[in-house]
Simulated scan of single mutants.
Amino acid sequence: MERDVKRFVDACPTCAQNKPSNQPPAGLLQPLLVPKRPWSHIALDFVTGLPTSHGLSPFQCCLGYQPPVFPAQEEDVGVPSAQAFIRRCRRTWKRTRSTLLRVQARVKVQADRHRSKAPHYVQGQRVWLSTRDLPLKVVSPKLNPRFIGPYPISKVLGGSSEAPLPPPLRRIHPTFHVSRIKPFVCRPICLAPKPPPPVWSICNLLSNV
């Protein structure tokens, strides 16, 4: 009995569109690859003012030494030869990369505690699309369904999926993270909801009397 009720609720379109989920967001954290040397990869991050977690400034990570602040410190950063400069840079890059890998692994473990593994999606599979952050024109946001669709997946891109949207949402980029979609379940045990009855005006009712 419990299994049948769960199967019915999972396939119920009304429940799928309006029932909130008590599960963590889908999609585990996928960190970027840590480069082996400076300027081999360029990324943009809008988060600023973060302290360095490895004790090295960006200048030292690139050149292998801290910039001299006083004239007396210039002798400490003097480069006797190009080979010595390269060895110092490589030692700094290796230290920086190992520290970034440790921090990255620690952050992933902490982030995945509040996430769940995403279902496996394939091209052509139908999914429900979350209405969160969608500019839907509704009378009241409280009456807005939590999910709309279902829409077929046209392409799977790593942790994201592309789905063709209806004309009112054509201005939105059709790529969505796995946390913004959920599988569409269709089973014979759950019948499709019937369309609502037509709305009759007073004139139509009087004309049919």
Rank of each mutant, 00 (worst) to 15 (best):
R146T: 13
P24I: 13
F46M: 09
R132D: 14
V77T: 13
G27M: 09
A192C: 11
R3M: 07
P24S: 11
T175I: 12
P31E: 03
K108S: 12
R90P: 00
Y65C: 12
P51Q: 03
I202A: 08
G159T: 14
T131H: 05
C15R: 01
S40K: 04
W128E: 15
T175E: 06
S160A: 15
P31N: 04
L33A: 15
L28M: 15
F184S: 02
C15S: 11
E75G: 04
P196G: 10
I86T: 05
W200V: 06
R88W: 01
V79K: 13
S40G: 03
V209S: 13
V5I: 11
A16H: 05
F147A: 03
P193D: 00
S207V: 13
Q30R: 12
Q110P: 00
P188Y: 13
P168L: 01
S140R: 06
P38T: 03
H173C: 10
H54W: 09
L165I: 14
R171G: 05
S201G: 14
H177T: 04
I181G: 05
A16P: 06
T175P: 01
P58F: 01
I148C: 07
V34M: 03
L191M: 11
L33H: 13
I189K: 00
S116D: 12
K108D: 05
V107H: 10
P197M: 13
F59I: 07
V103C: 03
N18A: 11
A11N: 10
W39N: 07
R3G: 08
S161I: 03
P197W: 08
H54V: 08
P67W: 04
V5F: 08
L206P: 02
S57Y: 01
C15H: 08
L143P: 01
G55C: 10
V185A: 07
D133R: 01
R171Q: 13
R146P: 08
V138F: 04
P174K: 09
P167D: 11
E162A: 14
R187E: 02
T48H: 12
P188R: 09
P58I: 05
L136H: 02
I172W: 02
V156M: 10
I189T: 04
P168C: 03
S140A: 07
R95E: 14
S160W: 06
T52N: 12
R3K: 02
V77F: 08
Y151P: 01
L29T: 04
P150E: 00
G158C: 02
I181D: 07
P164C: 05
T52Q: 08
R97Q: 15
P193G: 00
P196C: 08
P197Y: 06
T175N: 02
K142R: 15
T175W: 02
L206N: 11
V77Y: 08
N22I: 07
H114S: 10
P58C: 01
P188T: 10
P196E: 11
A192H: 10
P13E: 08
T99I: 06
P20N: 04
E2M: 11
I181K: 06
L143H: 12
